Computed example of a mutant assay.
Amino acid sequence: MEPWKKKPAVPQTTPIAAICHQCERQKMSSRAKFISLLVAALIAGAFLGWWLREQRDISACLDAGGGWETPGGYCLGAKFGSPEY
């Protein structure tokens, strides 16, 4: 088509079937977005929980007078429990 010629006019009305199909596509894409965000939030929550558990263990070890060994992830020399009076 030559650039100096006008393009044919597009009708202003859209068939109802096409409108309903567009709505369904939008619903599906928003549903897919919601599911994707939910899965991402669950994965991020699992990693955050795992990291926070390790931080809690390190803090408990140091509070009990022990030393935390990073390469193995274990506590050395801590005495857990209530103090003996």
Rank of each mutant, 00 (worst) to 15 (best):
A9W: 07
S82M: 10
A32M: 11
Y74T: 07
R31T: 03
K5S: 15
A64W: 08
I35V: 08
M28L: 09
A40M: 00
L76V: 14
T14L: 02
G77F: 08
Q55E: 09
Q12L: 11
A40R: 00
F34V: 03
Q22R: 10
W68H: 01
C23N: 14
L37R: 05
I35M: 01
C61N: 01
Q55G: 00
L38H: 02
P15Y: 06
W68T: 00
K7M: 12
W50R: 04
I43F: 02
W68C: 02
A44M: 05
G81K: 01
D63I: 03
G49Q: 03
Q12D: 14
F47N: 04
T70L: 13
A60E: 02
L38E: 02
G66M: 03
P83C: 09
P3C: 06
S29N: 13
R31P: 02
S36N: 05
T70A: 15
V10F: 12
Y74D: 14
P15K: 05
E54N: 09
G66R: 00
C75I: 04
G45I: 00
L38I: 00
F34Y: 13
D63S: 10
D57P: 03
A18C: 07
M28K: 07
A64K: 06
G77E: 05
P71Q: 09
P83Y: 09
S29E: 13
F47Y: 02
D57A: 14
P11E: 06
W50F: 04
P83Q: 04
Q12V: 11
I58S: 04
F80G: 02
A32R: 10
P83D: 06
A46T: 04
P15A: 08
G73R: 06
L42S: 00
P11C: 04
Q12M: 13
L76R: 15
H21A: 15
K5V: 12
R53F: 15
D57L: 15
D63E: 13
R31V: 02
K27N: 13
W4G: 07
V10T: 10
K6S: 11
P83V: 09
D63K: 12
T70E: 15
L37P: 03
H21G: 10
P15T: 08
W51Q: 08
C61F: 06
L52P: 00
S82T: 10
R53V: 09
C20I: 15
F80K: 10
L52K: 05
P15N: 07
I43D: 03
A44G: 08
I16D: 11
M1Q: 13
E24V: 07
Q22M: 11
C61E: 02
V39D: 08
E2H: 13
K33C: 07
I19Y: 02
E69C: 11
W68N: 00
K79A: 14
W4F: 14
K7L: 14
I35Q: 09
P15D: 10
L37K: 06
G45L: 00
L48Q: 03
S59E: 10
S29Q: 12
K5W: 13
Q12A: 14
W50V: 01
A32G: 11
